[in-house]
Design a protein around this nucleic acid. Structure first.
Length: 455
RNA sequence: GCCCCCAUGGUGUAACGGUUAGCACGGGAGCCUUUCACGCUCCAGGCGGGAGUUCGACUCUCCCUGGGGGUACCA
């Protein structure tokens, strides 16, 4: 089984494209093919305007990040112009294609006369675009692994334009030829190509070649059911990466968009390779639901070792995150991007949250509790670790006959500047005795200078 | 306009002629609890509509409706 992923480098790799790449990759690398398969990467850059080296690199990059690898060097469609021209000439010589000067207006006029549902038939001109001859008789049948049989009556099909007047080929001709030349056995791509498939089939027929098998995947829509676009938020792999998602979670989530396996949701890449079958792909379009991706990402995040989590956080935030700091946030974040808002105070000092200060310090005895906590922490034995901190702070709770939060919240406020943070013992221990005391003192001083206004 | 595809709760899916229509996200309630989370328990919520076929339809056929795609000398 030889499959391919053929993006056109017109921008970032979007989620739909990434899923197409993933399904092809699962076919090539997984068990479904019944043996080792191959994945060919082809860059469809015949649209000179929009295809830039930066866009190409961006797509390669996104694929690498996801862990999707391919076999051999990428094929650039633009490099295959000679071969395209060769076969084009052959079809012209065999009168299977002809030149036509007909414009879009001419086609419309023709249809006005013959009926909207009738395919356009041109007459041969000395120059102009190249059209394939499609007869009015018969039909072309697409046998799709996912959708079953779809029949297209030739009567409805225009003579497809396969090359421009200058001889450069168009998409529907180029794909067919390129897939043929590298021996693609299965074309797995988005449903937006289904209606174009009969044209490609016509190309194979004119060339006297056997077409590959086809599987057309349902499209991915935004949460509102419309076509996925930028205004839906993160719509490209790069954006998901920036948003702090893990590649393994993105891969897992993408696989689930249009396919499912019984009661399982969280499926490792190995499991996906084992279970995935194209035939099982759903026929209806799926909506991209970032909330579920967030949840899934949290699941994967929690499985990482502290060292690994720290490594990924460091890479994502571009700041050195030690394993201990990573570990204490592990059950509280869903994306790598959630780390900094939650734990940034460990590095950059307490946040400035006047409302939180007033709320916490405004409670009866809060200041006194904080003073006692300070003393307990100052006296806590070495090593200044989580058990030591917990013991010290719980002693204060007991001594004051208070609720735990009456003591913990003021301390949290002192070190974090706000009311949300990782566990208080873990946070204090991570910060260290010296820095904790400094921050507690700072808060005590500040609140003395500016006592909260009591109402 | 024409051609084509699709239709299970808010979302993703499972079951594919006979089940109390399953699982997950999200939502609600509760437990846990030092905040936020995590975790656990429970609850609500679905086969778009109409004709057939059948002893029996979510599952098969047709129509309607609603989405989507294609219809370029774009890919």
């Amino acid at each position: 089984m030889r499959v391919r992923f053929a993006p056109s480098p017109t921008g970032a790799l979007h989620i739909g494209g990434a899923r197409t790449a993933l399904y092809n990759w699962l076919l090539a690398r997984g068990d479904a093919g019944g043996g080792p398969g191959e994945l060919v990467l082809r860059v469809e850059d015949t649209d000179r305007e929009r295809s830039t080296p930066e866009n190409v690199e961006q797509i390669f990059d996104a694929l690498r990040w996801l862990g999707i690898d391919w076999d051999g060097d990428p094929v650039f469609q633009s490099h295959r112009a000679d071969r395209h021209r060769e076969l084009l000439q052959r079809l012209l010589d065999e009168d299977k294609a002809y030149r036509s000067r007909a414009t879009a207006d001419d086609v419309r006029a023709w249809k006005a006369q013959h009926g909207d549902e009738r395919g356009f038939r041109g007459t041969a001109d000395p120059d102009g675009a190249i059209r394939l001859r499609a007869s009015d008789e018969g039909e072309t049948v697409v046998e799709d692994l996912i959708r079953g049989t779809t029949t297209f009556r030739h009567e409805h099909m225009d003579d497809p334009v396969i090359a421009r007047a200058d001889g450069s080929v168009l998409y529907n001709f180029a794909v067919a030829v390129d897939d043929l030349d590298v021996g693609i056995t299965h074309v797995v791509r988005g449903e937006d190509h289904l209606s174009n498939t009969p044209k490609q089939l016509l190309v194979y027929e004119a060339l006297g070649e056997t077409p590959p098998a086809y599987a057309h995947l349902p499209l991915i829509h935004g949460p509102d059911g419309r076509k996925l676009s930028k205004r839906h938020g993160a719509a490209s792999v790069q954006e998901l990466r920036d948003a702090g998602y893990l590649p393994e979670a993105v891969l897992n989530y993408l696989a689930l968009l249009g396919w499912g396996h019984e009661d399982d949701t969280k499926l490792s890449t190995d499991e996906l390779k084992h279970l995935f079958r194209v035939q099982d792909v759903a026929r209806n379009p799926a909506r991209f639901d970032e909330r579920k991706l967030r949840w899934l990402n949290g699941q994967y995040l929690r499985e990482l070792t502290p060292d690994e989590l720290a490594r990924r956080l460091t890479e994502h935030t571009q700041r050195q995150v030690p394993p201990q700091a990573a570990e204490i946030t592990q059950e509280k974040i869903q994306t790598l991007a959630d780390f900094w808002p939650l734990a940034g105070f460990l590095f950059d000092g307490p946040a400035d949250d006047p409302a939180a200060r007033e709320r916490v310090l405004g409670r009866d005895g809060a200041r006194e509790a904080l003073e006692q906590a300070r003393a307990a922490l100052a006296d806590a034995p070495e090593p200044f670790d989580v058990p030591a901190v917990e013991h010290a702070l719980r002693q204060v709770v007991e001594a004051r006959d208070a609720k735990p939060k009456d003591v913990f919240q003021p301390v949290r406020l002192a070190i974090a500047g706000t009311t949300v943070s990782p566990g208080i013992f873990e946070s204090v221990a991570t910060l260290g005795r010296e820095e904790t005391l400094r921050r507690v003192d700072a808060l005590l001083d500040a609140s003395e200078a500016q006592p909260p206004i009591s109402v």
